Amino acid sequence: GSSGLPPGWQSYLSPQGRRYYVNTTTNETTWERPSSS
């Protein structure tokens, strides 16, 4: 899909309704949208 996220990243919603991002390669999580640069 065209999520616009860098490879390996997925976006999720927290129980509070906030969006966060997870790097499935490194298990890093961040509130900031990852850049593909």
Rank of each mutant, 00 (worst) to 15 (best):
P7M: 08
T24V: 11
T29K: 14
T29R: 13
G17P: 00
Y20V: 06
T29D: 02
S36Y: 13
R18N: 14
R19H: 09
P34F: 02
Y12K: 06
L13D: 05
Q10T: 14
E32F: 12
T24G: 06
P7A: 10
R19K: 09
Y21W: 11
S36N: 13
Y12N: 04
P6S: 04
Q10L: 15
P7T: 08
W9Q: 00
G8T: 04
G4Y: 10
G1T: 13
Y21Q: 00
T30K: 07
G1W: 07
S14G: 09
R33K: 11
N23E: 02
Y21A: 00
G1Q: 12
Y12V: 08
S35A: 11
L5Q: 02
Y12W: 06
T30F: 08
E28H: 06
N27Y: 09
S37N: 13
P6V: 04
G17V: 00
T30V: 10
V22P: 00
S14T: 15
S37G: 12
G1F: 11
S37I: 12
Y21P: 00
R33D: 07
G1L: 12
W31P: 04
G1A: 12
Q16N: 15
T30E: 03
Y21T: 00
G17Y: 02
T25E: 14
V22W: 08
T29G: 05
T25G: 07
L13R: 06
P7E: 10
G17I: 00
Q16T: 15
V22K: 08
S14W: 00
S11V: 12
R33S: 06
G17D: 03
S2V: 14
G1D: 14
T24K: 08
N23G: 00
E28D: 05
Q10F: 12
G1E: 13
R18G: 11
S2R: 06
N23R: 02
G8Q: 06
T25H: 13
S11Y: 05
W9L: 01
P34G: 01
G1H: 12
R33W: 10
T25V: 15
P34Q: 01
S35T: 14
G17K: 03
S14P: 01
S3N: 13
G4F: 11
R33L: 10
R18P: 05
T26G: 02
T26R: 03
L5H: 03
S11G: 05
Q16F: 08
T29F: 15
P7Q: 08
S2K: 08
Y12R: 07
G4A: 13
S37H: 12
V22T: 05
P7I: 08
T30R: 08
S36E: 13
G17M: 02
S14D: 15
W31A: 05
P15M: 06
Q10C: 10
Q10H: 11
Q10A: 13
Y21V: 00
T24Y: 08
E28L: 06
W31E: 05
Q10N: 09
L5K: 02
G1P: 11
P6Q: 04
P15W: 05
E28C: 04
R19E: 15
Y20I: 06
S35W: 10
Y20H: 01
S14R: 01
S11N: 01
G8K: 04
P34A: 01
P34D: 01
E32N: 08
T29A: 10
Y21L: 00
P7W: 08
G4L: 11
P15F: 05
P6E: 04
S36P: 12
T26E: 02
S11K: 02
P15R: 06
S37M: 11
P7R: 07
S2F: 10
Q16R: 08
P6L: 07
W31Q: 04
R33P: 11
E28S: 04
Q16V: 07
Y20M: 05
Q10G: 05
Q10I: 15
Y21I: 00
R19S: 05
P34S: 01
W31S: 06
T25A: 14
R33E: 07
G8V: 04
Y12I: 06
Y12D: 04
Q16I: 07
Q16S: 15
N23H: 06
T30G: 02
T25I: 15
S37E: 13
P34I: 02
S3M: 14
G17S: 01
S14L: 03
W9K: 00
N27G: 15
L13F: 08
W9F: 03
N27L: 13
V22Q: 05
Q10M: 14
G4W: 13
P34K: 01
G4E: 12
W31M: 06
E28N: 04
Y20R: 01
R33C: 07
P6I: 05
P15H: 08
W9R: 00
G17T: 00
N23S: 04
R33N: 08
T25W: 14
L13M: 10
Y20A: 03
E32Q: 11
L5Y: 03
G8S: 05
Y12E: 05
S2P: 13
R19M: 12
W9T: 01
T24S: 09
S37Y: 10
R33Q: 07
Y12H: 09
T29Q: 10
S11I: 09
P6M: 05
S11H: 05
G8A: 04
G4V: 10
S37K: 10
Q10Y: 12
